[in-house]
Structure formats: C-alpha cells, structure tokens
Amino acid sequence: MKWVESFRRTAVASAMFVLATSAVAGAAAAQTVDSIKKGGVLKIGSQVSQVPWGFSDASGKLTGFDIELGEMLAKDLGVKAEVTPVTSSNRVAALLTGQVDVLAAVMGIFADRQKVVLFARPYTTNDTIYIGKVGADIKGWNDLKGVRVGVPRGTPQDIAITKAAPAGATIQRFDDDAATVQALIAGQVDMIGGAATQVPNIAQVAGPGKFEQKFVVARAYNAFAVRPASREWAGYLSDFVARKLASGELPALYKKWIGGELAQMPTTGEGEAALPISVVQ
C-alpha cells in the first residue's frame, strides 16, 4: 500500500519538522542604538499602500507621513534609511524576526500588541471611523443588523468590530485598505472601517455625495514599535518624538499629510495611558 506508507512517512517527518523548529529558539537579538549607528543603515518597516501614511507618489517614489518620519529618524541617527514594505498582517512577524529594526507602520498602541512588542511614545493620533452610504441610518454598533461591513484584516477597525461583534452584522476581512475601499465602491459591502483621511479620497474616486463618515469609533495613538528587550532603543525613539514635537517638525508633518492640528497625546507608549480612547460604545 504505497499511499499508506507515503502518508505515514509524511506524518512522521512533519512531526519532526515541528519538533526541530520548536527546539531551536533562535535569535532576533535586542537592538541597540550603537549597533544601528555602527551598521550605518536603519531598517524601517512601513506600510506602502496606505494613503497618506505610506504610498508611492506620481514618480513612483515612496512617500507619506510614516516614510518622512522614518527619514527624519535616520537623519537624526546619522544613518541611511532603508524601507522594508510590510502589511498590517505581517509587520509584527517582520519585527520579531529581525527583518527590520523598527516599525513605523500605522501601528496603533493596543493592549494585546503591547504584550508582544515595545512601543515608544506615540507620534501621532489616528481616528478610527466607519464609512457608509449617504442616507443609510447608521449611528453605532446597534444599527448594523443585516449590514455587510468590510475591514482591513488585523487593523484597529477589525479589532473594534470583532470585539463589539454586533448581532446580525456580516464582517468581511480584506488584505488591505485598497481592497476594502474597492469592496465599498463596488457595492460588495455596505460599510467599511477606515480612517477620516480616506473620506475625501473615496469621494474623488466614487464621485462626491455617495459615501460619508458614519461614526467615530476611537482615537488610537500610533507609535514606533521595537522588539521587547530593546529598552534603550525605545528610549531613544521616545526622546526623538519628544524633541520633534517641541521643535514643531512633527506637528508640521501632521498638518502636511493628515491636515489640522496634532492633538494632545500620552507621553508613553506603555501601560493603559497609551491605549485608544473609545468614542462610541
């Protein structure tokens, strides 16, 4: 019986594969400021398909809030910035395995994320909102019965609706913002979780007066994230944010990409103080 043998052979080898990978605990070592300066390169993980945080401009060059902030940081360290594209679903893996030194990847501070990475003090606010058709009578979670809601997987919008889990709502998860927005415009979902910055962009593509902000869920604080043991490196980043806030460069960056004034933020990325403020229950 060839197939019995081949199945057994595979099962045994799979088990060995798991054991081997489990037994060897590898090294994605703690990061120090010195080692980065010595290497001469800062590897930054950023999202590259998130207007206005990180995206490519008309000439194909990467730009956006997180990208410029990363360049500012590299300049501060006196090293070269090297952007590694990450997505909201693979960024933590990229950081923990040492593919990047730091994440500036539209990453809001959440309690479960605090358990796996170390956040520096927040550098911007990010309001989570839900966007739907003009005229639909939706003001909060309770109005979502029978509504198809699209969210980008693993984002605050996803976390919020998964936690609130309104009865009768269908949650559809997509890989990124672009696909989520496209699902809304194509009529494949009735509502999407997104950010206030998306509303004018959607109007530009779908035509004005079709989609609007339905309700704000929360204000999250985005911050640099580093590997848990890299306390000294996180300290440097917090100090960097404090200096750039004081110098006015960070508020200027916010005005340029997001618009308006940068609101007050907690002065630490750790503990409950840094968690999002809930706006709608």
């Binding site: 594969f17 679903s89 933590v92 893996a93 997987r153 693993g154 997509f174 696909a179």
Partner: peptide, 27 residues
C-alpha cells in the same frame, strides 16, 4: 482569502492578528 472568503488561510490570518503567534499558526 484576498476577497474575504472564509477558509483555512483567512481563519489562520485572523488568529494570527489576535495572538501574534505567526510561526506557530503558519506551521
């Protein structure tokens, strides 16, 4: 999973975003 259809990969990805245990879940 890219068009939000539910199957093993999309469920694994969702568990990944809840637990951050990427390797374990993908193995």
């Amino acid at each position: 999973s890219s068009i939000s259809a539910e199957e093993l990969t999309s469920i694994a990805q969702s568990i990944d975003t809840m637990t951050f245990r990427s390797f374990e879940i993908y193995i």
